[in-house]
Amino acid sequence: MTFTFLMQNLINALQWGSFYALIAMGYSMVYSILMLFNFAHGDIFMVGAYIGLGVSLGLLSLFGTGAAAILPGWVLLVLTILISMFLTAFVGIIVERVGYRPLREAPRASAAITGLMIGIMLETGNILFLGGQRFKFPQLHQFIAHTKWGMAMRAMAYDYVVVPLVGVPMNTIAAMTFAIGSALAAAAGILFGLAYPVLDPYMGVSFGWKAFVAAILGGRGSIMGACLAGFMLGFIEIMTVPAIQIMNRLFSLNIGSNLRDLIAYSIVLVILVFRPHGLFGQAYSSKLRL
């Protein structure tokens, strides 16, 4: 049990957690305004990763690599992230416009089902057409807490009927929320692509659901909670493996590390038993509306 082994796991946990955190924050943002989990969000993460790949390949071919490089590597990386976030934000806006806006008055279940369908469409669309850095979180928090748009997003969560009646263009706010949430997912997608250069059309499904768990764990609608819970979930998941190894060696057991998810999510379940509305969620008297 060396120090470097521990450090390596810690770094992995941070990295893994940052993916969850970025995706979970997107879930929470959309939830906080529409009281609705955008179930297509995991797949927007996947789209973001692919767009990131496309943009980086495009930039590399345009500006060259190696000795002939016109722009240094870090500039290309920053450009890739910015352009991909921008493009993925557009995907988010389209999802809101086509999928959710017509259903704003409809029962929540309709919107939830629509979200799942949009997710599948994004996955199969990907198969059809392709055959297969730390984000500055404090600034997002102050955006939500203090700016006119952030205020409007929160106001929509409590009573959206009156929001336009005080002069706020509601559709702009809804689209903007989806755009920011999707841009976050794109950032996660690129970071993922950098660390694990294997993309597949279904990568958004497992990641998306786990980030959804993080959003719930953080407290529905709490963006800060989602971020922390994302890192926490990453930490629990990664650290379960060395914990299993240590247990095996100490007690000469033979627990397979493929039990990782089972153990990790049992821990999450225990936390939720004691804090049913999540780490930072407010206690709601109403039932969870999907």
Binding site: M151, R154, A155, A157, Y158, D159, V161, V162, Q282
Partner: peptide, 10 residues
């Protein structure tokens, strides 16, 4: 509004 429609937690 008759039922006010305030944004409860703001």
């Amino acid at each position: 509004f008759q039922e006010m429609k305030l944004w409860r937690h703001m």
